[in-house]
Write a protein that binds this DNA or RNA. Structure first.
Lengths: 191, 191
DNA sequence: AAAATTAATGAACAATTATTCAATCATCCA
DNA sequence: TGGATGATTGAATAATTGTTCATTAATTTT
């Protein structure tokens, strides 16, 4: 053609970049390698992204949005409290689990020379639904009356931790594991 | 003198390196900046460390050892179970809290081209005392009978999470905060 | 206090890696 | 089909950053 911009190429570059960052960290990321991993010439990467900085920032936003959308779908705060709480806890577990790789990227991005100040605030948005729900739980007298941040820590902290253990090969994660952890967590925060 | 090697200089370099990594991540760490931050000429850094790789690995070991020693002191597994559990939980909280900066460094090191395979195993050692204690708790019938990894996640996950919230400026951490979280966590895992 | 020894300096050099762009290729359309 | 348009290439270049080492400074020894 003079074919239109091929967006699958952008996604290919994203995928390669993510893979390389996970393997070697930000410090080891080289544009030439990104190109090679994407089966492209180095110059081609610069057609789709202004420079390395741009590539990394675009990738961050791409991953962040994808994760947020995925998490929010299927959550309906109108339903009965205990049910919503359960759904949201498992949804967070599953999304986090399926996107651990990305999480590692996001973590590193957070402490890097690339971080743009405006994204910091946006980052918290993904937790907003949980935040709101916990507030509601306190008001409705269904949860311990402590600071919502404390409840949140108890909700998601163990999830992060068990997924880490999983990646260190210390534990299997299956329906039973998840349920057991869920019960412990709920036992802690419910009134 | 021909004075003996000045170890305060090594510590100065460590401190500068840590500071710079926390500010800009591994990707942004420059030997020239390390030197400048330490009020030394670039060449001087190479007197004390073979190269950049060496500097980073030495720093990792230095921080890891310091943290481990600090955590282990004052823990005596011979005492009564509930007391040890409480002491160890607060000790872990305090050490983690006081060394968040270092933790951020250690995390980044963990996913970087610098990671030496042998340190991976050593890394888990710091959690060993907690691990052992939880095992004992299950045996003595004082804790929920689930996989120790699950108990561990519930123990330390919320700690990591609340400290993160603290660093995002979302919450104060004081004796009350800590106690409230402690109670939630224990409510969850105790029988 | 001069000679000897060790530490420190920082500009010069080497190595690595980001970026550009003239040349080539692929596709479209008249 | 041939010229026009836009995409792709990758070697050449620019920029950055790690490392060295001849020189200078500091300290110790005799």
């Amino acid at each position: 053609m003079a074919r239109h911009r091929d967006y699958s190429k952008i996604e290919q570059i994203f995928e390669s970049t993510l893979k390389l960052v996970l393997e070697k960290g930000f410090a080891g990321l080289k544009m030439a390698e990104v190109a090679k991993e994407s089966n492209l010439a180095t110059g081609t990467v610069y057609i789709y992204f202004k420079d390395k900085d741009d590539l990394i920032n675009q990738l961050y936003l791409f991953l962040k949005r994808r994760k947020t959308i995925l998490f929010l779908q299927g959550i309906d705060q109108k339903e009965e409290f205990d049910l919503v709480l359960k759904k949201i806890w498992f949804a967070y577990f599953e999304v986090t689990m399926q996107h651990v790789n990305e999480s590692a990227f996001l973590e590193q991005y957070y402490r890097s020379p690339f971080l743009k100040s405006n994204v910091k605030e946006e980052s918290k948005q993904i937790l907003k639904p949980i935040y709101d729900l916990l507030g509601r739980g306190v008001v409705e007298g269904k949860l311990q009356t402590v600071n919502v941040e404390i409840l949140l820590s108890q909700m998601v902290g163990p999830i992060h931790e068990i997924i880490r253990a999983y990646h260190d090969g210390a534990i299997e994660i299956n329906a039973e594991t998840m349920n057991q952890l869920y019960l412990l967590v709920m036992k802690g925060i419910k009134l």
